Simulated scan of single mutants.
Amino acid sequence: MKLTRKKTLIKTKKTALKSKKQFDLNEFRRSFESLDAENYGSWPLPVKVTVISFIIALIAAISWALPISSKIDEITAAESQQQTLLDSYREKESRARHLKAYQAQVIQMETEFNTLLDQLPKDTRVSELVEGINMTGVGSNIRFQDISVEPEIENEFFIEQPIRIAALGEYHQFGSFISGLAALPRIITMHDFEVSNPQPTLDVLPELNLVLQTKTYRSKEAAPEGDETVATAEAAPTDAAGGN
């Protein structure tokens, strides 16, 4: 008898477990159709669990979409700003470590710059410069077509005086002329130039055209020369060309 009762109890428990494990989808769906909206306590347990899970998921999604996602954007922006600040800090820290060396270089550059400014003439003296250019051209056996003294260009620390030179000659004569200009006592820099052959021929060595843009400089401390000096400078190339 005892064995029979035990077997019966075991079968009953197994049957109960099987009934708990089985899930009827249709019955679960019908439980939603017969809900009493005014009496939440009468809802079946599976329905209550499903509704609560849905509410929790909805709250979590809203929390993520609104404050958490905005905070993530702020954190990303802060990380980017942090990297920028770190790079700026490294650069400034490097400058601070080499500050004394930079200051010494600045002092040296200012000294050298002031020395160069002191070497500039206080007045224009274009007539003397044009005369030197004429003499250099005569010594190089070139023939001037034009020497034009162009308007001055004022810079922050000095004034530029452009001078355009047009001449005829050969390659070696032009090289000698350029070397002569570099040897003049006045500071002259040479910029744009053009060498062309107006009449190419294979019989004789061609005579070339040279157009050269030069610049000389003067200090801003003194006023430029009068119109008479400029007029003399512009007239000088004609005399030199005629002499050659």
Rank of each mutant, 00 (worst) to 15 (best):
E33T: 04
D24L: 04
S53E: 08
S19H: 09
A16M: 07
K48H: 02
K100C: 04
T111G: 09
N114I: 10
T115G: 13
I68T: 15
R97A: 14
K71D: 13
I107E: 15
I107T: 14
A101I: 12
T50M: 02
W43Q: 02
W43K: 01
S34D: 05
K48V: 06
P46C: 01
L17T: 03
K20W: 08
Q22M: 07
L66I: 13
A101W: 11
R97Y: 11
I10P: 00
T111S: 12
K20D: 06
D87V: 05
N39F: 03
Q82M: 10
K11M: 07
A65I: 10
K18H: 06
T12E: 09
E33K: 07
F23D: 01
T12P: 00
L86E: 15
G41L: 11
D73L: 12
L17A: 07
A78C: 07
E93Q: 10
F32N: 01
I52N: 07
Q105A: 15
L85F: 04
A37H: 08
I59G: 12
T50C: 05
A60W: 14
K92T: 05
F54T: 04
S34M: 01
E93T: 05
I72D: 11
P67Y: 04
P46H: 10
E112K: 14
R90D: 12
V106W: 03
E110K: 14
D73I: 08
K20L: 09
